[in-house]
């Protein structure tokens, strides 16, 4: 073994202490979390309910599932859920535009960006159900409260993603335009907006996908959508109705996911 090799061998980074510390902390956390959760297996009743739900999934209430009259059936309820998510996304994405500019360090000064960021974190941490209850005081129970909740809760994530778009703008275009003698207005109109538009749209569509999932749970506090009928059906053990709702939900969300992926692909590839 020559000297250089021997020296290099000694330089080997020693991560044993670091890794074993993490391993010990992790093990401790796992043990601690086991102590908190009282593991209960299936008991007689639980197994019975699980089989009921499964049989409900395979023998759904077809009349309820395909009742296209407004309001009552699964399609109507899903439509309401779609509308809540749609409006919530539209409002949220508009509100997110000024906020995202206020959050971008390359547009405003660092303190302003930091404060806006804190405010957004603050908004994001309050669970959507709490907002739902607060808005119900404003509008009374119903889908309108759901729309307002969605608008507020989607601001956080949308503006964060918008900021990424703004920060990653291709500045080469602006340089080229400056070299051609364009004014600031021209640079914004023809250099920045076209870049922002499609990326913002892509983010918004992505968020719509998530809002649709979230909109389904707003019903739990009475803010419209398909959540409330689901709870009622479960509480009164109407399993075939539960099955219909779950099937409708899964099909809808899968369809929207596929559609939104296709749409975003086209936006990115032109």
């Amino acid at each position: 073994m020559n000297k250089a090799v021997a020296q290099q061998l000694e330089k080997a980074p020693n991560r044993k202490v670091y890794l074993s510390t993490i391993a010990i902390i992790l093990t401790a956390l796992i043990i601690w979390s086991f102590m908190g959760v009282n593991i209960t297996g299936f008991d007689q009743r639980g197994t019975q309910i699980a089989t009921n739900i499964f049989s409900g999934l395979f023998s759904p209430d077809l009349e309820f599932l395909f009742d296209f009259t407004s309001g009552g059936g699964v399609p109507g309820l899903l439509f309401e859920t779609i509308a809540i998510a749609f409006l919530g996304t539209v409002f949220g994405s508009f509100l997110a535009i000024p906020i995202s500019f206020l959050m971008s360090p390359s547009i405003v000064s660092r303190p302003v960006a930091f404060v806006t960021r804190l405010v957004v974190i603050f908004i994001r941490t309050i669970p959507s159900l709490v907002y739902g209850l607060m808005f119900i005081r404003v509008t009374g129970p119903g889908p309108y409260a759901g729309v307002l909740t969605m608008s507020l809760t989607s601001i956080g994530m949308i503006s964060r993603l918008y900021v990424d778009v703004i920060e990653n703008l291709d500045r080469g275009v602006l340089e080229a335009m400056t070299s051609m003698g364009c004014t600031t207005y021209q640079k914004v109109r023809y250099g920045i907006l076209p870049q922002l538009f499609s990326s913002f749209l892509s983010v918004t569509i992505y968020r719509y996908d998530m809002n649709l999932r979230d909109a389904t749970i707003l019903g739990l506090v009475g803010a419209g959508g398909i959540g409330a009928p689901l709870i009622f059906a479960m509480r009164s053990y109407r399993w075939s109705e539960v099955g219909s709702i779950l099937i409708g939900l899964v099909v809808l969300i899968l369809a929207v996911e596929i559609f939104s992926n296709k749409l975003r692909e086209r936006l990115v590839n032109g």
């Binding site: 197994t47 389904t216 939900l249």
Partner: peptide, 16 residues
């Protein structure tokens, strides 16, 4: 596709 709150709801029926 199942929202967490809904799977939690179902789970409360099964596991109490």
């Amino acid at each position: 596709t199942l929202p967490t709150l809904i799977s939690a709801l179902i789970a409360t029926f099964i596991f109490g």
